[in-house]
Design a binder for these strands. Structure first.
Lengths: 248, 248
DNA sequence: CCAAAAGTGTTTAAACTACACCCATGT
DNA sequence: ACATGGGTGTAGTTTAAACACTTTTGG
């Protein structure tokens, strides 16, 4: 075993000791409850030390032979059943001491977290409570204090979500196959706030771009004129792939 | 020692075996040679197996007690002496098998790479050749085949560089304290290509924003009317922090 | 008929584009 | 004087923002 201070190579041949890591994957999973206009993040309650009983992001440690993304999908599938989702890597947190399981003196194993960002459709995301002491969709503004540095990760994920919405067609990954322009608008306002654009301008701007295709089918939701159902045409979107700010 | 197939918990109490990691940091370091209008990436030649003698990104393994960012700064400082630089995390690559040092059968230690993106000022970046078998600023289009998955990382870094230029004031991190608007324009065209904007429009757009402040000092470079030296006012820039596309 | 939701159109200001043109310097 | 790079101005077009208006439904 190494002493509790690493030697910075007194002997020129001896390399300074490398750190050994366990790698965790933590997911920031968002969904939008358009009925109540709320942006939700999935939180689970920790069932073991450290931070027993405290809320945190759903996470897991990476297993032998498993890729980072596989681990992200695994933990996601353990917590919710969902048809459509969007997932991408967020950021990697690895400062020494970010996990209390690291013994502060002995330079033992380090815990690194590769965070992933996911967006799922709220209406068909079914929470799995299997032997978990707590799992919940938390409205973002009401998120409690989280274990580890997870508040920081959550905040970072929220920023990414807003950027993604503005620049890329993520929204269509979590909307149903056909949707009204109001569904789309609700999703945007819930995430970005009321004052990002007025509905009629949002509407005409998007339609002019030509990748939303009117199915002609009308759907009525209570009072008011029935809305057209639209379909996202991924093919017609390709020219806009690298263009900034298509959606705002 | 574990067998060469991990058991997926026959016993419900036994957890599936976790992977053990070494964590590497690989830097994509860019600089812009405005004199020759070339975008350069820093490459070094590997001095040990695997990939002995092949070009790769400057990287290192993270040591005990060292943060990821510290490791990124350490490897950078080992290769170049530089006054100003911009550095941020890029992406984390961790598929099993991405490093040949991982023994394919035995589920031994895994090698994960957290990549960092850096931009330095070419004119005052002094390469350190200390006992290195090769180190070079490679024009991006002429980059050779690199060790590991480093071509992929480099490509990813180039994309990030273009985005950063468009949305954030990174350019001023690598320009001298005072610079002409042409210096700035050259930097942009070198990275983004000739046809991103014409000079006079680029110029008036930026000046109108009000965070470039004319020092009044004129500087002459050969023939032609002398140019004004400008200074970037970080304070006056703050209102544009979160606004998209300030520079194009 | 009225309220509510969907969808269209108009007006005004601002921004982008592509130039043409003037200015100050070295040779 | 003239080529060279720096800098200003403008006309024409395109977008953005605010908001009034029409259409179609449920009650």
């Amino acid at each position: 075993m190494a002493g509790n201070r690493p030697k910075k190579s007194a002997d020129p041949v001896t390399q300074p000791a490398l750190a050994d890591f366990k790698v965790g994957v933590d997911n920031v999973i968002f969904s939008v409850d358009t009925a109540q206009n709320r942006l939700l993040a999935l939180l689970v309650m920790r069932q073991e030390e450290p931070f027993l009983g405290q809320w945190c992001l759903p996470g897991t440690l990476v297993r032998q032979g498993e890729s980072l993304e596989d681990a992200a999908y695994r933990i996601l599938a353990e917590k919710i059943r969902v048809k459509n989702l969007y997932l991408e890597q967020l950021y990697t947190f690895g400062e020494p001491g970010r996990d209390p399981r690291e013994s502060p003196d002995s330079y033992g194993v380090r815990y690194l977290s590769v965070s992933y960002f996911a967006l799922v459709r709220f209406e068909d995301a079914e929470l799995i409570a299997n032997g978990v002491s707590g799992i919940a969709w938390y409205p973002l503004e009401q998120a409690p204090q989280l274990a580890f540095d997870h508040n920081q990760i959550l905040k970072y994920g929220y920023q990414r979500l807003r950027n993604k919405l503005e620049y890329s067609p993520v929204a269509f990954e979590v909307l149903p196959d056909v949707f009204t322009l109001n569904d789309l608008y609700q999703l945007y306002t819930t995430v970005l706030g009321e004052n990002f654009s007025d509905y009629s301008n949002f509407r005409s701007r998007l339609l002019k771009l030509g990748f939303l295709h009117d199915t002609g089918i009308k759907v009525s939701r209570g009072a008011g004129r029935p809305a057209s159902l639209y379909r996202f045409d991924a093919n017609a979107f390709t020219p806009f792939k690298d263009k900034p700010l298509v959606f705002i």
